[in-house]
Each structure stands twice: as structure tokens, then as C-alpha cells.
Computed example of a mutant assay.
Amino acid sequence: MKFNVRTRGDQASNILTQKIKNYLQEFKLDYHEDKPDIVISVGGDGTLLEAFHQYTHRLEETSFVGVHTGHLGFYADWQPDEVEKLVIHIAKTPFKIVEYPLLEVIIRYQGETKSKRFLALNESTVKSTEGSLVMDIEIKGDLFETFRGDGLCISTPSGSTAYNKALGGAILHPSLASIQLAEMASINNRVYRTVGSPLVLPQHHTCIMKPKYDADFQVSVDHLHLVQKQVKAIQYRVAEEKIRFARFRPFPFWKRVKESFIAE
């Protein structure tokens, strides 16, 4: 089995990363940055997001597992003092694959500029670089509403516990192949009217945002922040690809939610 270890970069994470690497090589596993079968993320959820984006081109071949070295990570199953146990599991026992839905983001441009495609594990946000964001929102090809406000957030089920939750969105179980659209401070008057509630779209529904005016936009895809010019439309839907997590022991989703937000 080929493996790679990604570190957050702080001293504690670096030491633990080297320990994991040494242990696995002692078990005759191959360290391979380009084509790993499993990627161990050491740090927090941000570290795992970076690892995910490094390997979006081989999601069918690569699985992920997280070790958290700070605050409890939502995607991290393992504590630093459990590293030896994790290494033995990786080296000696078959692991269960758990798949989570992803968000597909396609940005289309005016003129001859080629469209860009991204995948998000948590969410994508859209904001105007100046003033309010004004967008027509189409669902399944039909105009649903015209949004005016600070911005919009489109999240995956696993990402529904992040920015989406802070915006008042619902927490969705990752077994639901869906995306959620949440508003940031919408303006409602006689000209602009929105439903004023988060929307959950199933797998076969596509959401398209079309700018009402020519403007520059700040589009985020997880931790990536991109300034986009001459945007014609931004398309969102459930991606065909999924992220694969390596599970060596049960860690139910609702237990993660409880431990992240309400456990003492």
C-alpha cells in the first residue's frame, strides 16, 4: 500500500507526521506523494481540506483519514495518542470506505474564456467585491428568485456543519446526496424578494447563479478564495465524484456533530 502524510506545519503536527511516516515504512508500506492509496492528514479540518484538493484528480483511488493535533476536527477520527493503533490498523487490517457527497462548481465567463470546474468538500461562497451581490437564481433551468444581499453559500451535507450552520442552515446527514443554499443578509423590498430560507436541492437539481450587472466577484471553494471577472454564470450541483474516508472503527455522523458542538 502507498501512503502520504500531510501536516498542518506546526511543530507538534510535524513531529507526529514524521512518527507516522517512520512507523508505516517499518511495516514496509511505500511513501508516495503522487499516487497514494491512503492520505493521513495531521492537523485540523483545514489540513484535510488541503489534502483533498491536492488529490481531487484521483478520488476513486485515494482514501483519507484524519489525526487532529488541536481542537477537535470534524473530519479527524484519531487523537495523537492513538497514532500507534492507527498505524497498525492501516498496515494490518482492511478498512471500510465511507463516501461523502461533493459539490461541483462550474464558473462560466463572457466571451471566449474557458469555463473552470472545481470540487468542494465543505462549501462555495459568492460575494461581490464591491457593494451588494445581485444575482438571478435559477433552479432546474427556471428563475426562482433575484437575490440582493451580502452573499450566498452553497454547502455539501458534511459542510453543512461549517459556514452554512453559522448562516442558520440545517445540518444534513452525508448519506443525503444534496446541496444547500443559504443566504447572507438578503435584502427584501418591492424590487428584490427572496424566500428568506435555506434551500436543500437533491442530486438531480442544478442551481445556476447569473449576475444582474457586470461586476467582479469573490468566489470561495473551501479554503480557496478566487476573484472572478466577466462572470456569465456559476453552476452548482452534486458532483459525480465522492470523497472516500478510510474508517477503521465506527464514528457516526451525529456523534461527530454532538462532540463538535454540544458535548461538555
Rank of each mutant, 00 (worst) to 15 (best):
L201T: 03
D214G: 09
G73F: 01
G131Q: 02
I40Q: 03
Y75A: 08
M184P: 00
K19C: 11
L226Y: 08
L16T: 00
T69F: 03
M184I: 04
K35G: 10
V98I: 15
A233V: 00
I107S: 04
D30F: 01
S197W: 06
C207P: 07
N122K: 06
K19G: 08
Q218E: 12
P174F: 07
W78I: 00
E104W: 15
F27N: 15
M184E: 08
L59Y: 03
T69S: 12
Y31C: 11
A166Q: 11
F64H: 09
E61K: 13
P36G: 10
I40A: 02
A239E: 14
R244Y: 06
A170H: 07
E50V: 12
K116W: 11
V200N: 01
P198Y: 09
F217S: 04
G169P: 06
P36T: 10
C207W: 04
G168F: 07
S175D: 15
S260P: 00
I262L: 05
A12D: 08
E33P: 05
P198Q: 10
F64G: 09
A120R: 08
A166V: 14
Q110D: 02
L133I: 03
Q79H: 07
M1P: 06
T47Y: 07
E123M: 04
F253M: 00
L224W: 04
E138K: 03
K21E: 12
Q180A: 10
F74I: 01
R148D: 00
A166F: 15
G169K: 01
N164Q: 07
N4V: 08
K92N: 14
T156L: 07
M135Y: 02
L172I: 14
F144N: 03
R237K: 15
E60T: 15
E104G: 13
Y31W: 09
E33V: 08
A76H: 14
P94S: 03
S175R: 12
E145Q: 13
M209R: 01
A239M: 14
D136R: 00
Q228M: 12
D30Y: 02
K232W: 12
A185I: 05
A233F: 01
K242T: 15
G111C: 10
L16N: 09
K232M: 12
G168M: 12
Q54D: 09
L72S: 08
R244S: 07
L172C: 12
R6C: 13
L199H: 10
V39R: 02
L48F: 03
G66F: 06
L72G: 07
S175W: 14
I20S: 05
K19W: 07
K258C: 13
Y192L: 00
R249F: 02
Q79D: 06
D216F: 15
E130V: 15
G66Q: 09
